[in-house]
Design a protein around this nucleic acid. Structure first.
Lengths: 347, 347
DNA sequence: CTGAAAGCGCTTACAG
DNA sequence: CTGAAAGCGCTTACAG
């Protein structure tokens, strides 16, 4: 029976002292039970647990943190200038995945959004002041100053996606990423298997690993198939729907005869399909379209989008695992996870 | 000049004691400066501020919280059984808005997701244990048990959207909501102004205020226009895209001659348009479609969706304002914000 | 206006 | 295995 507050008032919550008295032991013993039960006799153990149940005791984390110097919470940091991430459904999945992976450890997630330089300053200060034990970083920018500062301050950090910026020379950084290059290869092979021979691509931003690696995969498969790489078939966009739309326009202009296109994100693929359809091209009859992400957006296109699934569940789970390990003293680690081709109607 | 850590190690951060010594005052005086500077001479004030700058001091919140009993953080609680909210772009906007409104007060937001009964239990305990000073609640369920428990425990709470469940009898609850009924009226009037006379509606879930009120607005305008309300023209869905699709199918079946439809959410409107188009109906020529939300989804439909904008920025800002006021001791408050018709191509 | 002192609730060596 | 004690970094009456 927990000691619930009756009515609307808040009663002073029980402390370790109340538990100790109830159990007939010292506060030190209660604390030992709370922290793993080492060096505690079974009898004391038992008495304390009973007292905890009876009093409804729950540890005051502020007091604990004050002494341990740890916050027992983790930050989820977004360093995006725009609402890019809020436009991108992948973000949701990732956030949800991290939240529940942490919940399994009873660790709350602090969401931090550092969009402006001002916010970045405040949040960096906040983090380095020790308010979180580590940071899950979601940032698309190669030369993210926040990441560098945190790393330098020794804050445990794991980023989503391979960081590519320079300067990361000596300092090893943890990250978890999908196998972008391999996913791209799968998609382009699939398009070729459909009999398409003029396969275009809308790459992502080329200062991002996803942009670079997915394009590399595209080139590789064309080469392996003995097909020439026509640079007119290669454009790039900013991962947004609008970016996809204008990329498609450029493609239509430069190489109107393409019969398939591998688009480096589902959101851009949405834009591409819309542009193609406006231009009178049928998908997939005239142009097969393949995306990347398997985000919810892939189901809202007409026809539904064939795409490469990024294993977001595993990505978030691994990010949390690696971060907690690092907080526990382990060295940084990089994890690459496989992707999967999801066939739907667009290709 | 802040005392940044050099290399990768973490130096023991300066405490109030270091500042006091540096400034040549007592720790009490430093604390007073930190907490508003009341009863502090200008000279001392000055010395302390200089010492803070010099040492790079930043308050240890754990210590402060231990004594004040406040956490100086706020929870953003989602009690959704499914990933409903993650499918719904409105959620993003709301979350972002609340985060930045709180950031202006230097208050971190703790994101809490209570999807399962198990999670709900843990999180309720977590909150009532005082880890956050108040809660921004985003829950669609009328009889949400979490909300009831928190209210009973006296936790400051403001929900997004008008709560409708029973039992809230005596206890006044804070909430911030858009004017659903008025928004619905605007949309239906707009559809009528287009010359449409067989106006259908896809309402939201009828155990939610948005479901009920938007439907009420629809009925009202029909009545005011002297048009009969044909119950065959009224169906309802669960706010999801799939729900919209099947609702449209029902409508097509029951009243194939409708020439306009007011859909209670953009996501459902997406589904409705897709179903209509599959059935060979042109939008807006054959059927004018109006949504509700003005979510990002409204821009991804083809043609773009005419909809009712919910003022999410203001909603989140008001939620934060009301919550902080309540934490500060003020009484609960309800805030209703106006909506706006956004004309695009679908109606 | 200011300092000395008590105390918030916990953990952790330190002696037994 | 266990208790007494010190101390984490702060705030807040309490006397001046």
């Amino acid at each position: 029976m927990t000691m619930s507050t009756t009515g609307g008032g808040r009663r002073r919550p029980p402390t370790i002292h109340d538990v100790a008295r109830e159990a007939g032991v010292s506060r030190g013993t209660v604390s030992r039970v709370l922290n793993g039960g080492h060096y505690v006799s079974p009898a004391a153990q038992e008495a304390v647990n009973a007292a905890i149940r009876k009093t409804g005791y729950v540890v005051n984390r502020h007091a604990r943190s004050l002494i341990t110097g740890r916050s027992d919470s983790v930050g989820f940091l977004l360093t995006e200038p725009q609402e890019r991430f809020f436009e991108d459904p992948n973000f949701n999945v990732l956030l949800r995945g991290c939240t529940s992976a942490l919940a399994a450890h009873d660790i709350p997630l602090l969401l931090m959004i550092a969009g402006t330089p001002d916010e970045r300053r405040r949040i960096t200060r906040y983090i380095t002041a020790g308010h979180v034990d580590g940071v899950l970083l979601v940032s698309s920018h190669s030369g993210d100053p926040v990441a560098a500062e945190l790393r330098e301050a020794g804050v445990p950090l794991v980023s989503c996606g391979k960081p590519i910026g320079p300067g990361s020379s000596a300092s090893k950084v943890s990250y978890v990423a999908a196998d972008d290059r391999d996913g791209a290869r799968d998609m382009v092979r699939h398009l070729l298997s459909l009999g398409r021979r003029r396969v275009a691509t809308v790459a992502g931003p080329l200062d991002l690993p996803g942009g670079v690696d997915r394009l590399a995969g595209y080139r590789e498969v064309l080469a392996e198939a003995g097909l020439p790489v026509d640079e007119d078939l290669i454009v790039s966009g900013d991962y947004s729907r609008a970016g996809g739309e204008s990329a498609a326009a450029r493609l239509l202009d430069r190489a109107p005869d393409f019969d398939a296109v591998f688009v480096a994100s589902d959101l851009m693929a949405q834009g591409v399909m819309s542009a193609l359809q406006k231009a009178g091209r049928r998908v997939p009859e005239d142009v097969a379209v393949g995306g990347f992400d398997d985000s919810p957006a892939a189901l809202t296109t007409e026809p539904a989008l064939t795409t490469i699934r990024q294993p977001w569940d595993r990505i978030s789970a691994e990010m949390v695992r690696v971060l907690l390990a690092q907080i526990g003293g382990e060295d940084p680690a990089a994890v690459i996870l496989p992707t999967e081709l999801v066939r739907r109607a667009s290709a």
